[in-house]
Structure formats: structure tokens, C-alpha cells
Design a protein around this nucleic acid. Sequence first.
RNA 1: GCCGGAGUGGUGGAAUGGCAGACACGCAUGACUCAAAAUCAUGUGGGCGCAAGCCCAUGAGGGUUCGACUCCCUCCUCCGGCACCA
Length: 857
Amino acid sequence: MKRNILSRPPRYLPHKIEEKWQRRWRRHKTYEPDFLGAKKPFYNLMMFPYPSAEGLHVGNMYAFVGSDIYGRLKRMQGNDVFQPIGLDGFGIHSENYALKIGRHPADQARISEKNFYRQLGMIGNGFAWNERWETYDPEYYEWTQWIFTQLFKNGLACRKKAPVNWCPSCKTVLADEQVIQEKCERCGSIVIKKELEQWFFRITKYAERLLKNLDKIDWSERVKIAQRNWIGKSEGAQITFQLVDVPGQENGKHSLKIFTTRPDTIFGATFLVISPERAKLWLDIGWQAPEDVQKYIASAAHRRNDPEEKKSVEKTGVFSGVSAINPANKEKISVWISDYVLDNVGTGAIMAVPAHDERDFVFAKKYGLPIKMVVCPHYPTPTCPVLDNAYTGEGHLVASGKFDGMPSEKARAEIIKSVGAKPITQYRLRDWLISRQRYWGAPIPLIFCDSCKIEVENEKLLKKYNKGEIENPGWIAVPDKDLPVRLPRIKDFRPEGTGVSPLAAVKSFYQTRCPKCGGKARRETDVSDTFLDSAWYYIGYLLQAKNEVRSTEYGSANLKMFRAKNKILQKWLPVDMYIGGAEHSVLHLLYTRFLGMAFHDWCLTDFDEPFPRFRAHGLLIKDGAKMSKSKGNVINPDDYIRAYGADALRMYLMFLGPFEQGGDFRDDGIKGITRFLERVWKLMPIAARIKKNEKREMTKEPQKVLHQTIKKVTEDIEGLQYNTAIAQLMICLNAFEENADGITREDALTLLKLLAPFAPHAAEELWQLSAAKKGDAFRSIHLEAWPRYDKRLTTEDTYELIVQVNGKLRGRVEIPVGTTQTDAEQAARALDSVRTHLISPPKKIIFIPGRLINFVV
RNA sequence: GCCGGAGUGGUGGAAUGGCAGACACGCAUGACUCAAAAUCAUGUGGGCGCAAGCCCAUGAGGGUUCGACUCCCUCCUCCGGCACCA
């Protein structure tokens, strides 16, 4: 084989080799780990894509290649790498497209699937194809449903009536996390609030743990910060104010609880404000409010639901006529109703301290309410400034009775005690709204039985129910043996906007028997949020491990199945390296952590953080803007792969900027990579001429560069600094070409190994041509050992000393490593440029061995 | 408004507080060619200078330091996230 290339050096023709190696790798199961026998399991995961009909775009490829390079390094370093692939094809995103083009989502899924897998195969990643699966596969969503029933049985799923986000275009409710700047995450329509009864997952039960665990996981800092903000912990107090002047009621009969993080400012609380929703509740229980107040309450509620009006930041409000007593100073203050108070935060009521809260200040100014300063930033200077906006910082208390002079931080606890308030921790995080009134999703595996509900209404059970021991009366989980609840193929899958799923019109679907009493019962017809599908997929791949043990063989015995796979789960989980987009900071990544904790608490797994290490990749943009269909700047990798080959595109994508930062896709740079690969191609036959044992006198330079390259490429891949790793490979090639006679075959093969993660096909082809002997069984370069560097060769024995005068570069001298300051100084002074600038004797000499000498005059 | 990230040649981008602009793209000139493409060679931040060389330069302005792209403060611009969260 070697002789061949010597006589007729082959040209680099990517399309001739890439498909060949992709096929061969699959046939030889090059990237399939031995799940039970693996000695050093390494789970390398990249967020799986949702198969949009347009196909894989170059941004997906960017992320996948970045993950693959890391995985390939780990594999060559001797790990058993598992790098799965699948499709997140259930859910609104896929369904909306199907609706748009008028094709059934199930049919569209098959089409997209084929196209996606074709494209994913072309990019040259080391995927374990055997374990792939799709979230809409009934075998997959059987598990999704089983997890749902587990959440239900463990008290983490509950049905609640609450004001929820409703997308008028997608005609379904959405979780808080899926509302991006008041808009639907999928279609961009402005979301409105609707009061509906829905299924929720109790993620709030885990709020503190989700927050605290962030400290122990190794994640991109920006994602941790996003999660911290989203969970939004705030510590404060619940304070009770007695109400007076309630029409037709005795004073002191009613009270109002408010939440504040600044109890220290209570002496400055000059009025209270309640949300319009809260006020409406008062009306409902018989409050005789003046007519204008009633009017306001009705209009404010309307405003909140109007997509146009809700954008307004202008605060409106009305005096309720009711007053309250400030428990700190016993002053009588007015109670207002305003839309700037949110109903779902705290108690839906606040104490307004206009001097120390921006919003209260604006409101007080507008309605001429008193502003009383109680925290002074300049204490003990008695004069406090006249405020033209609120002072929200810390200081010392004034006008606060016996607390005068106390630092505000300290006063918080003291005042809580003195007014008999309750210290409380609040989270911004809300429960995860899981129901969707749509068709294309996993049906929620619950059944409602009227007669079982009535049972709850007997006295004994009712007591339990009231104590919170029985939840969701009448609702029963579909037993494991009846899973999956198959999504029927229906003709009319269009969402109606009536608040129910299209499945609610399918009698054969919802009519069923109660698993408990056997009576007539009705299935839940909503489907679950897509994010439930993706919240456990990392386990899903492992459940697929070794194709022969598929869930069908185990029937519906899911728990048993889980246990049967336990060895594999224990061996491979948690995920060693997870890479994905930062846009999932508070969506997928939060939900997955929540489920991970639940699994752990149910003793299904022995870890509570599924992704101890996560890195967010950057965004690939085009002409400074995000790639999107609407802008028409989405790039399909197919054309580029056809023209330049997958290897060139891979390397180009990785070369255009730091992986974690992203970059701008401009195709003029891809040529440089092609040139590089062609030069590597030409170098191999030259290097092959010299065998190891007849080693010529190796010039020191290229060998040094090679070992520096091993070091740099290894470290850079570990740190996801792919752009500089590629630059170093180029430097190495440049050095090799300059000394083409001095390099050996071994040197060239080492360079190939370093190139392998980036350009897997080209590296494989050249490796097989140059390294493999005729008749040998196929052994992929990607399973070869990663090169190690010789420390002696990465360090120099002389160096260029930088010579500065007053910090300005004046020259350099070559001196041996370890030269003393005196000798270095002497060498430096010998330079003409130093002599001209050193007009007077230096006051000070800074000498940094190995680097520079600086004469300060 | 708050919280992140970033601002460096014509372009993408390199630089543990120590040679600013690695590595590429592009461009220019030359070689090869009838010619072009490809390839190879050389040059390529700005200003002054025949040259050696000198000066200026990392969004703007200050500061710390012998020395700042890098650390600190103030401000401007862009990108991303959150947004009346009490």
C-alpha cells in the first residue's frame, strides 16, 4: 500500500473517502461501547436536536462537531466513549410545522427523521447509532408516561386551578419557562393569562436544592447565573397588618398579610397595596366596595389579559376606602389597589415604602401619597437628602422609634421580632405546568373516575383530603401494565382553542375503565409538555443499550426494566460531559435537574445531578444576526459538505472562533482549511519515505514544534479551545514542510493522530494508507492511543530575553535558560539600542528569568 | 432598569500582568502559464524616514504598576438573559 502512494500520490478528494469511512465505522462498530464490559466508561452527551423540517442547520452541526471532538480525544485517551444520538421530535415545534404544511405529524416525523439521520451521518461524528431513538416512538414515550405516573404517585404531580400562560396562536397553555419576554417560545405570539385547571409538576419543592446544588456542579458560569436568577430566592418576612374602616365590619376583625424583603423599612410604610386579583377575591367574599373601586378592579383584570395593554408600564391604582394599622408605629395608613402588584408573588399584597422602593416611589408621586425616609445613607449627619428617587441601599435607621441609629441590615431581624412577623423565604420559581392542549405529544397517563371521586367525599376520606393527604381526588395513574397509552392516529389533530386537546373529541381514546373500581372512567386528554420527553433522555439511551433487551421483551414492567438495566446505569451515569445551548439554561437544564433529583429520591439512581459537568457552546450567527427562517439566513451544511467535504467544514466551523463563544459564519474562510488538508495529504508520502529505524538526523526544530503541538492540542481540546488547537496544527504543518527532509514517518503519523478528532475521515484514510500493514485487520485511528509529549522537547534551552528601558521594547538577546541577572544585564547593556536609551544609570532593574529585563531610569 | 458576555488590523480571531496582532481569510507584488485558475515565494496596523530607526495604536477617559488588551473606577456601543419578584 505504501509503495502505491509513493509512486502516485493520491489527491485529496473528500467525497471519495468520507462516505466510505462512515460506512466502515458503522460496520465495525467503531463507536459502539461495550456497555457491560467497559473499563473506563465516558458518557459524552450533546443535547439532541428536534428535527425541524428544514433539516439540520449548520448551527446544529457546529454544536455536534464541538462535542464530537471532545469525545474523540477522550476515546483516544483510552476511555470507552458513549456518544448517543436521537431526535426530540414530539411536541409543538414539530406539530406546528406539520400543521403549516398540512401533513400529519406522524408522517412528517418519518420524513424529518430520515433526513436528519442522513445529515447527522454526514458530519462524521462518532455516534453510537445502535442506541438511537426518538421521543415519539411508543417504546420511548412508554417510559415518559411511566415517569409521569411515578411523579404522580410520589406527590409531585398535582392538578391546580391557577392563572396560566395561554398562547392564542398555539392554542395551548405554556410553562413559565416557555414564555420569553411575554411571548410564546415557539411561535412568538404574545401570551395572555387564563384561569384554568391544569396539571403541574412540583418543581418548587426542589427550589432550594436546585439552587444549592449549583455550587457543587461544574457548569458554564453564565448558565448557573441564569438558573440562580430564575429560581430567584429572596429572604424576608410575612407581616400582618390589621384592617380598619372595612365597610360593615368591626375594626380589627380582618387583617392583611404582606411579604417584604425589607422589614427594616416598616416605619416608612405609608400605605399598602393589593393586586386587582386579590381585590376581586375580597369582592367575592362580600366586600362592599365603592363603585369606582369595583370598576377599577374589573378594568385592571381586563388590562392584564389584553396583549396590547399589558405592555404598558404606567402604574394605575385606586384607594380602596379601607385602611390599615402599621404594626410598627400604629399609624393609620390607606390600602390601595394597583396593577403594579402581582398576584402570584408573595401574598399578592405589599407594604409600600416609597422612600426606599422605586416602584412605590413612582406610585406615591403619582397619587400624592406621603414619602417618609427611614434609612439614611449619611448617618449620623442628621440631614437626609430630599429624595428625587427612592434610596434602595443600606444605611442607618431614622424616624424609626427605638431602632434609630441601627444599621439597616441588623434592623431586619430585630423588627421582624418586634412586630411579631414570620421570617419567610420566597422563590420566584413556579411549578412546572405540564399539560398541553395539543395532539402531538405523550398522552398524560391518568384516568379520572367519578365514583372514586365520590368516595373521597365520604367523611373519613374527606378529612384526609383536607389535611392534604389525598390529592387530585378521582385521578388514578394508568397501571404500568397498561402503558404506553398510545397516541391514536386521528385525522383532525388541529388544536381548537377551546381549552381541550383534539383528543377530547376522540371517544375511543378517552372512554376507558377505572383501573381501581372497574367502572366507567375518562382519560385525561391533554398531552404532556415536550420538555418532559427530553428531561430523561440521557437515561433513555442507556435503556436501549444492547439492542436485544428492548422494553417490548419486558412488556410494561417498567420498574423491573429499570432494575434490569441497573448495572449499565450505574456504570455510565451520571453523564461525564454535557454540551449544549445556553438557550436551555432555564428550560431543559432545569427540568432535567429536577427529575434527576426525583429519580435519586426514589432510589432509581445514586446521583442527584445528572450532569456534573456542562459547557454551553456559543451561537453560530450569520451576518451578525441569529440564523432564522424568517431572516432567510439559515445555512444548510449539505451544500458545503458536497463542495468541501465534512472534514473541511468541521474544521472551519471550529476554527472561526472560540467554541464557547460562537462566531459569525462566513464561507470565505473555508478555503484556508481545504488548503491545509491538501497540504497534509501531500506531506504524508514525503514522510513515508523515511522509516523510524533509518531515522535521519532529525532537525531539532520540527520535533520541538511537534511536541509543543501535542501539548497544546491536548490542553486546548480539554478546554474546548478548538480554534487555537487548529492554529497549532497549522504551525506544526508549516514547520514540517520547511523541514520535509528532517521528519520521519512516525512524526507525520503523530500529527495525523492529533488531527483525527477534527478531520476524522481524512485522518483515517491517511492512517490506513501509511500505518496499516497489508492483511492486518481494520483498526481505526480513532481507537489508537493519543500521543504523549516529551517534556524536555517542549522546553527550550535558550530563550530570547526581552530588553526594555522604561517598559519600552528596545531589543532582545538570546541567552541560555538559567542565566543569572548579572550576566543577563551585561548581555542587555551590550545592545546599541539600550546604550542610546540608557542616558543615566538605571534606578531600578526588573529581571524576570525566562522572560525580560527592564531598566527603569 | 437589573444580571451576564463582548468591543483588538480590511475580515475571523491570538496573547499565565511582560515582544500586541499568533493562525487564517483577503489584498498586493513576483514565479509558473499563451492566458486564467490552482500552486509556490515575498510583503501586508497607522504615521514619519533613503535607511537604521522613531512615534502612535487593543471602544472613550482616569487609576494601580517598572510594565496593562489583561487588574480597578467612570462612561459609551453591541449581543444574550431576566424584567413592576416587593
